[in-house]
Design a protein around this nucleic acid. Sequence first.
DNA 1: CTGAATTTAGTACTAGGTATTAGGATGTGG
DNA 2: CCACATCCTAATACCTAGTACTAAATTCAG
Lengths: 195, 195
Amino acid sequence: MRLSKKLRQQSLKEALQADPFLNDEDLARRYNVSIQTIRLDRMELGIPELRERIRHMAQQQVRALQPEEVIGRVIELNLDESGISVLKIQKEHVFSRNGIARGHHLFAQANSLAVAIIDAKVVLTASANIRFIRSVRLGDECVAKAKIVQRSSHRLRVEVETCVEEETVFRGTFIMVRYEGDGEEGKEKPDADRV
Amino acid sequence: MRLSKKLRQQSLKEALQADPFLNDEDLARRYNVSIQTIRLDRMELGIPELRERIRHMAQQQVRALQPEEVIGRVIELNLDESGISVLKIQKEHVFSRNGIARGHHLFAQANSLAVAIIDAKVVLTASANIRFIRSVRLGDECVAKAKIVQRSSHRLRVEVETCVEEETVFRGTFIMVRYEGDGEEGKEKPDADRV
DNA sequence: CTGAATTTAGTACTAGGTATTAGGATGTGG
DNA sequence: CCACATCCTAATACCTAGTACTAAATTCAG
């Protein structure tokens, strides 16, 4: 038997969520209705046509593809001194069950900022000591401030503190290693203490 | 002046790499040639039409969207005991300049595994102490082993060691907090020590 | 100047639609 | 049972962004 309009539209919505690559013809076959019916349904549900849906996905892809040199957006940078980056917590950063950000995203913001403020060809993290002080939630704007607090020839200590509206949510100390990489950039691991 | 065929095709390739959303008409205007010329160029360069390009990108997007409950693939799991996950280092995990994996991806693998092995409604990371022992490179298979080494009512210590072919590349100790979340799942932060 | 390479024009056809009009089927209240 | 509404389908014209193909015009190089 054919589904009622309501059920069909409900199902249609879910089907397209699961597989946005279905065209109207596929859908018409699936629900045993005419293409026109499917089109009316899409109208009523406000679902754009296949090509628009695909285009939309591809556009997000552009953003997702960006090799995320730094996680978050750098808003201040004093090379070899300090830097600030901002990360807005989106759906993809949180546990779906409770809307709390996964720790590694805060870590990633801090870690990549620590890398970014150091002026060298190659910068790697050797170790880190971190604390997640308060939970961060969907929609929060995390402002990470990084500062170099100690440096020797190629070893640096960077402290990062991340706040959401003046409240500290994360603190970490990163030991970073830098190499000028003069002529040996692509070579194999020179020793230890890298990532 | 108009570019030579060779130069135009070179430039075309780069332009589409930078912005795959350009259609033939846009390109024809850009290079002051006819649409047909652009189409010949695409043929010769083996560049598919706009819609195919977009479709391709969107398909990758599907994979990228997967909410990555655990970073890496879990291959063994003894709930409330231990677990193992494997992460193959891909292009998107490494610094393009040297092919070395960014630290936060190793951290993410370890952290999400630490979350996964704990049997509770809500599990958060309170703090962590980590060391990046050796650099990990493009193509490496990182095998992370996590073990709960200490537990009290809602606080657990998890140790994670990640190896690439028997060689330890990462070690971390994570202090995790669990909540059974009985009836208060969606509520605001109950206290501190969360992420 | 000639011949090849290059560019352009034009036609027929395609997928996957939009937008619109109109007609048929089905159901429901009076 | 009729009337009206809802729902579904059909048909047409049009759109974009192409492919595939033929043919003519232009440009360049020897």
